[in-house]
Amino acid sequence: MTTFIEYMVAALILLGALFALIGSIGLVKLPDFFRRLHGPTKATTLGVGGMILGSVLFFTAVERTFQFQEFLVSLFLFITAPASAYIIAKAALHLKVQYDAEYIESEAAAKEEQQDQNLS
């Protein structure tokens, strides 16, 4: 393994770990639930993505053949992360977790209106 590739792998791994850490800091630091929701999407995309890219580069250099299986983990996370973020947000809206009060009222009014229309 050449030094250049070693530096690349090190940089990618550090980048991934840094973004995972920043995502978790956001999870603790931000004030309300919907702002906290933005932390994990970062950790998934560039955090795990960068780390897996580094790992693929490392194994490709060590084994001298292209080892791309690990991209499947990244692909799977890219497909599932929006689904889980969406359903958690939906659960939070269902439980009426605290957020902008204006929106709650307008949406509740709209829903009642729709129900009235359905009834009549």
Binding site: T41, K42, T45, P82, A89, L93
Partner: peptide, 12 residues
Amino acid sequence: TITLTPGTVSSE
């Protein structure tokens, strides 16, 4: 796509 781009989350 909206959720994966950081800064925006599609929620309902």
